[in-house]
Amino acid sequence: MDFALKVHELLPPQPWKPGGQHPVIKELKCTPKEYSQAVSLLVEEGLRNNQKDGVVYDQEGNVLCFDPERVDPETMELIDA
């Protein structure tokens, strides 16, 4: 949990942009797997929320917020670039 809290301190507010994990991985000198496990633990502990394709969900699956640059607000699907 100590490592996960370090990740938590470095993460920006959600929703995260693609590639946002790279600065955290570089700063903490960890592997992508260690980063991913830490984020999963943060979600499990309620310190962060599930996020998929720019949409952030609460524990019940309700949409909390989304990245308007990446997600269509009507469909909640990724916008084709």
Rank of each mutant, 00 (worst) to 15 (best):
D72Y: 11
Q21D: 15
T75N: 13
L47D: 01
N62S: 13
M76I: 08
V56F: 06
M1I: 07
Q59D: 14
L28Y: 02
V71Q: 04
G61F: 02
D53R: 14
D58V: 11
P12K: 15
A81E: 10
G61K: 10
V63K: 07
P13H: 05
D2E: 15
A38N: 02
C30V: 15
A81L: 09
N50S: 12
V55E: 05
Q21S: 15
E45S: 08
D67N: 15
N62Q: 15
R48E: 06
Q14E: 15
I25W: 09
P68S: 13
V39H: 01
N50D: 09
G20A: 15
F66H: 11
E77S: 03
P15A: 11
L64G: 08
D80N: 07
P32G: 01
Q14N: 11
V7Q: 02
S40E: 14
D67Q: 11
L78F: 00
A81G: 00
A81S: 06
N50F: 12
E34W: 00
E27N: 09
P13S: 09
P23Q: 07
V63M: 03
N62D: 12
D53L: 12
D2P: 00
P15G: 12
C30M: 15
V63F: 01
K52C: 03
P73Q: 07
R70Q: 13
G20T: 08
G20H: 12
H8R: 06
E9T: 13
E27S: 09
L5A: 00
L41Y: 08
E27C: 03
P13Y: 00
M1W: 02
G54E: 10
P18K: 03
H8S: 11
N50P: 06
N62W: 04
Y57T: 01
K26Y: 03
L41G: 04
P23H: 06
D67K: 10
P32K: 06
D67C: 13
K17I: 11
D2M: 06
R48W: 04
Q14P: 09
M1F: 02
V71T: 05
V71G: 06
C30Q: 10
L11Y: 02
V71D: 05
V56E: 06
Q59V: 14
